[in-house]
Design a binder for these strands. Structure first.
Lengths: 188, 188
DNA sequence: ACCTGAACACCGTTCAAGT
DNA sequence: ACCTGAACACCGTTCAAGT
């Protein structure tokens, strides 16, 4: 934290950061438990540089997946303007699940992003889900007591599921259970 | 695997195994990420011995928690004979959650126990839950398409929740969502 | 201001040597 | 048959020295 607040970082630092992120995206997609050292080497930087930019593995994961998380956040309002609340919620879940399953790193990153630390401000993903839930509640389709963190936790179990057709069915089934559990008066 | 099948192990081996388990239970309860080496040292055995008895951390975790898992398995039929199916299910969930939250090691062990490996036989915990679900289905209170693995995965997200009164409320709320999602015709 | 890479403490795993 | 403990390969993290 020796950098003066609000100033542009030195150009080599900026480039190093970008290069680490690019390389990390590739290596982590291939092997989610790739070591930080292997990433540093592939990016052509020392371990110290790695550490300066991302203090710890989780920080790197969050940064790597920030793009996807932002896309997910935006998607919420897009879906809301095109579908009725409950359908928008279901579709958003599908996106969330697909993202979380894109790699175990994603799950860790999302988990870190979802944990609303005491005092800290709401992460954007939580805020996006809040939008969907609020619309659902106003349409009296979603239980009033449902909170965004509840739902994130519930859905997060779905990206633990493996691949294969059997698990695809399982996920669909479980998603139905979850949504029906969140509704007010399920007209099955 | 050099031991002749079905023969009593040598007494020192038996005692070592028991001692490792006892020590591991204590150390892991205190710190769930306690190293295998520290456990071996505390148990007064070499690392090799540790490895001979429990090839890998997960194997140790499973063994450590086997007692609790068995208790949980037995509890299912006890609850079934005393309560109506849906209530028995809810009470069993409470036990499952309490157990899973008894330590992060428990979650890992339960996760390993729940994963029905292809071809392998059903773990006892899954079989116990099956009993509960079957009773619920016969009483037409539980959706017919619900599978035990679905439910385990769903409930497992609950033992990620932290401590504190706020999280206690959250857990209760989420458990209600889950159960209502599993019912056939929820009379709320 | 930022980067490098040796150094440190630690981990899981293996295996030759013992009893 | 089983145990021991040194040895190996690897990890995340730190920090003095450079530019």
């Amino acid at each position: 934290m020796t950098q003066p607040a609000g100033r542009t970082p030195r150009s080599d630092a900026r480039e190093n950061r970008a290069r680490i992120l690019t390389v990390a995206r590739v290596l982590l997609a291939d092997d989610p438990s790739a070591s930080l050292l292997s990433i540093a080497r592939a990016a052509g930087v020392g371990q110290g540089t790695m550490y300066r930019h991302f203090p710890g593995r989780e920080a790197l994961l969050v940064a790597v997946h920030q793009g996807e998380v932002n896309a997910l956040t935006d998607k919420a309002s897009v879906l809301l303007s095109a579908y009725e609340p409950l359908e928008a919620l279901r579709l958003w879940f599908e996106h969330l699940i697909a993202y979380g399953r894109s790699g175990p790193g994603a799950a860790a990153a999302a988990g870190a992003a979802a944990h609303t630390g005491a005092g800290r401000e709401r992460p954007p993903a939580v805020a996006a889900l809040d939008l969907l839930l609020k619309a659902g509640k106003e349409a009296r389709q979603v239980r009033p007591e449902v909170e965004a963190e509840d739902v994130l936790l519930l859905v997060s179990c779905l990206w633990q599921a493996q691949d294969g057709p059997a698990w695809r069915e399982r996920r669909q089934r479980m998603l139905t259970f979850i949504i029906d559990g969140l509704r007010t008066a399920p007209p099955r």
